[in-house]
């Protein structure tokens, strides 16, 4: 493991957790929105510095990550390998920058590391590596890998009877990978009600809209037909996200279709296919940081 815990940052994260617990619904959403946009600002700076990255998908998944790591996942950034912890798998590994900024905000490692993103010998590779970055549970990058691993982790929690929950986030384009549908069958067959699969449904993939490439719809009917409890939400609404991440109510694994906007948070990046992995210019960086401030 190349990176270690940032104790000061963990303390800051803990204080935020206390605030969130005590806050009203409105205040909680405001706090999470601030946290999410700080993460987006980190991502802008990382991608600006590295000269590469996947800003569109980073921004669509940021609110999902923010809610998971602030009140949902039972984790301890001071003890990343703690037995019986909840697990998170970012199957859409190309959005590593958003994950790194989120993990750093929890204190898994120092936020000072973020600007090493994709630099020579950095722990922060373009796709996450569990042996280098604390908080990463499995190496991802090739699509369609995260959900089967999450199924295995959920099976392990069932066998151990430790009550651990497992969350995996897939891009919607990624649902074109057959391995996801194999894993969906296994999750339903074994009644993995401790498993939540989130689809970041921003409707864009690298080259075009999903529905113009290889149609996913009716995605809801497909997930239901595969035997999962389905929740369809606005993936940028913090209260809806928190509700969607509550445990299964049916004994089935939970699928969440989080309807999102690719590039969410910066007007000129939102919902534009070219921003899959476009890098903002110097002027655009300034504008983006202003919008996110």
């Amino acid at each position: 493991m190349l990176l270690g815990t940032d104790v000061t940052q963990v303390e800051a994260w803990r204080k935020l957790q206390e605030k969130l617990t005590a806050a009203s619904v409105t205040d909680r959403s405001a706090l999470l929105h601030r946290r999410a946009n700080d993460t987006r600002s980190d991502v802008v700076r990382m991608i600006d510095h590295a000269g590469q990255g996947h800003i569109g998908g980073d921004f669509s998944v940021t609110d999902i990550l923010t809610v998971l790591f602030n009140g949902v996942l039972r984790i301890d950034p001071n003890d990343p390998q703690k037995a019986g912890r909840d697990r998170f798998v970012l199957s859409k590994g190309h959005c590593a920058a958003a994950l790194y900024a989120t993990l750093a905000s929890c204190g898994y490692f120092s936020p000072d590391e973020l600007l090493t993103f994709m630099g020579p010998l950095s722990a922060l590779n373009g796709h996450p590596n569990r042996n280098k970055v604390p908080g990463v549970e499995t190496n991802t990058g090739p699509l369609g890998h995260g959900l089967p691993v999450a199924v295995g982790q959920a099976l392990a929690a069932k066998l151990a009877g430790n009550g651990a929950r497992v969350f995996a986030v897939m891009g919607d384009g990624e649902m074109q990978e057959g391995s996801n549908w194999e894993a969906l069958m296994t999750g339903a067959h074994y009644g993995l009600d401790n498993l939540t699969a989130v689809v970041d449904r921003n409707r864009l993939q690298q080259g075009a809209r999903t529905e113009d490439t290889s149609s996913l719809d009716p995605l809801d009917e497909k997930l239901l037909a595969f035997g999962w409890e389905l929740r369809i939400i606005d993936g940028h609404d913090y209260e809806q996200l928190a509700a969607a991440f509550k445990p299964s109510s049916t004994g089935k694994p939970v699928a969440v279709i989080a309807n999102t906007t690719k590039g969410k948070g910066v007007s000129f990046i939102e919902d534009r296919v070219e921003w899959h992995h476009k890098v903002p210019s110097t002027e655009q960086v300034v504008l983006a940081l202003e919008e996110l401030a």
């Binding site: 697990r87 089967p148 295995g152 099976l155 151990a160 651990a164 194999e182 069958m185 074994y190």
Partner: peptide
Amino acid sequence: DRLINVGIAEQNMVGVGAGLASAGY
């Protein structure tokens, strides 16, 4: 309970194995 048959789905099978190993099995 310790024989997990994922059916005819080898990619999933290896991923499930990785998940089990990551959680101490």
